[in-house]
Nucleic acid binder design. Structure first.
Lengths: 368, 368
DNA sequence: ACAGACTACTAGATCGATCTAGACACGGTG
DNA sequence: CACCGTGTCTAGATCGATCTAGTAGTCTGT
């Protein structure tokens, strides 16, 4: 009721307020809040109670500014990539387990990697995790904090990396198809995307080992790339795609070719299975195959890569190579923590696994 | 060469370093860096040059801590929602245009909205933009900073909102289909998802006005929801879905029903078009329809909602209601800025538009 | 010539935490 | 009893910026 009293500025309580309420010094409150040692159990309880009563929450800005250990890891991800989103979610959990906090910075068509990383540095992160980096390794290594690159193949020691074994993943896919009787297997590649070269090389090596003729169709990481590559593959099989006109690309669709019957279609030597660069691309390809009236997996088996949430949707149920996201995320955080603690950069390789789905099937003998 | 000198701590330069190099006070450097007035052009140039030479970058932590105007807007988004990702990207740009910075906080299966918002508050954001909030309006209104909710219908004044006109969007879809000759139009709804009720209501109202019998199939926001709802619709049309067995849900697929021919299939009164809650759901539905051998748009026209990047992929080319992302993002940032400046909460409604694609076509007369 | 206004600049307090150095109490030892 | 070690706690400096209040110096008008 004092007229001189300020009207009611609902100021957020600070450490000093808690200290006053609990009858201790600010420093002690800091100790208790951080969970550091140096306070008796009795006062610890008292301080925590006071903090709770006041609704105190530590101010991140002040903590970041003052403390030598911010316990903050920055994550750079491409906001247009669904699989990155999955990893981001897992990174939150993995970081929490190591008592680190995460702060995000997105890249995108109009926001570059450099910009994203620097905004993190200005915030005082102790390390940066960059998902599928496009910057050269040397540039990442030159940053003033340790960098962990995810999903990109090891770059030579200067930057820690966490990735799955691309070659092993492709071999899993090839072995799986081989076990189902497939011999003529094509590859729709990822073009210039991160990881594409490694997967293509592994495919070529496997085919060479098996003594089979390889067929690589240039593609890319997006649904549209897969769709386009699929159309090229169809053409090479002597099988026209669905719809002829330009405008009517979806009209009537598959009905045109649906009567073909079960197996072994098109030119002799046409592939009976394809391994696609990633799930997004595989989804585009699947769509194009099916609209052209090609039965999947009846006439053609398809394997993707990433085992993304999308691939696991029941109506899609794509056979895919899984990268074990939780393991990747945990390894990335551990690697970052280790480098912060002074360890040298290491390359972690996570073994991939094959997730069987409904888009691969045993090859039906042609002459049946 | 002085042995007492520390070996080489590559400390990041601070404002004091720049001040010393330029021969001015710290305060003046602050003025120049912020672009505030109160410095002559000559010194301004000198200070900027010194900053550049030293590679100075302002420390975000210190700036956030000290300044009353952090010019920081927090964005809460669901990392598993591709459409949110599109908006995030647009928000970065919209914020930059108003000289605000963005900081992200993701929600997800294991990270709630409350947690995400609070981490932003601890960072000192001046306002929060929450995309498709799930918390009750009252809870958002109780936060100590202004909140702008995106994509959720106006909640009654306490919280500013930016959303597209759901009812108008649905009407656009219905009018489009009506103009193509369709009369029996079904709706696959969004279940409990944000915005679903408004769209369903608008659909029912339109059908009532037109004197047609409405048919709402319960669905949801995900691909799998759309797929399931599509299967229900097929059943109601007396048309069995593709494949009979459980395991073989994709085998042979559409071939079973492909011979049906052009138009007007199934029970009398069966819909010739569907309006689906959103694009993701529509994609699932599309897949199920096509595998069942139902030609889209030959036998059934399909309209989605969001006009997402996915819908625009050339091989999908979904007719969809566009929410004008750039306008939404710009309005959200402007609204946040206005509330920070003291304005009352307002509800902004952005008119949607129809993006024609290849999944809708003129109805072929049944008795032709 | 002098008050008043304006411009260019600076010293020092401040934001809310952490960190360092040291005070104080208390029990055990020689 | 003096001394030491340990556990608990505090005063004050500090992080790197912004903000306030105030000081020179210049210009303007009468």
């Amino acid at each position: 009721m004092n007229p001189a009293e300020p009207p009611q500025p609902p100021r957020r309580p600070t450490m000093a307020d808690v200290a006053a309420a609990a009858g201790v010094s600010r420093a002690l409150v800091s100790i208790v809040i951080r969970g550091a040692e140096g306070a008796s159990d009795a006062t610890r309880r008292r301080v925590l109670q006071a903090a709770k009563d006041l609704g105190y929450r530590p101010d991140t800005r002040a903590r970041l500014l003052r403390s030598s250990r911010t316990r903050l890891i920055g994550v750079v991800f491409n906001v247009t990539e669904p699989y990155h989103a999955e990893l981001v979610e897992l990174l939150y959990e993995a970081a929490a387990a190591e008592r680190y906090a995460i702060t995000l910075s997105a890249t995108g068509p109009r926001r570059g990697e450099r910009e994203a990383v620097e905004s993190l540095l200005d915030l005082g992160v102790e390390a940066a995790v960059v998902i599928a980096p496009t910057s050269p390794t040397a540039e990442l290594a030159a940053l003033p904090v340790p960098v962990v690159s995810m999903l990109r193949a090891p770059g030579g020691g200067a930057v820690a990396s966490v990735a799955s074994d691309e070659a092993a993943g492709i071999r899993l896919a090839m072995d799986h198809l081989h076990g189902l009787g497939h011999r003529r297997i094509a590859h729709l590649d990822g073009g210039a995307a991160v990881g594409s070269a490694a997967r293509r090389t592994a495919y070529l090596a496997w085919m060479a080992d098996a003594g089979e003729a390889a067929q690589v169709i240039p593609g890319g990481p997006l649904e549209s790339d897969g769709s386009r590559a699929a159309a090229m593959l169809l053409a090479s099989m002597g099988r026209p795609p669905a719809g002829a006109g330009r405008e009517g690309n979806t009209q009537a669709g598959h009905a045109t070719y649906a009567g073909h019957g079960g197996t072994a279609s098109g030119a002799p030597g046409a592939p009976t299975a394809v391994v696609v660069f990633n799930d997004r691309s595989a989804l585009g390809a699947l769509d194009t195959f099916r609209r052209a009236g090609l039965g999947v997996p009846g006439e053609l088996s398809v394997v993707g890569y990433d085992n993304s949430r999308m691939a696991r949707l029941e109506h899609i149920n794509l056979t895919s190579i899984g990268q074990d996201g939780p393991a990747l995320a945990a390894a990335a955080v551990r690697s970052a923590a280790a480098r912060i603690a002074g360890a040298a950069a290491e390359d972690v390789v996570i073994p991939p696994s094959l997730e069987p789905g409904g888009t691969t099937a045993r090859l039906t003998p042609p002459g049946r």
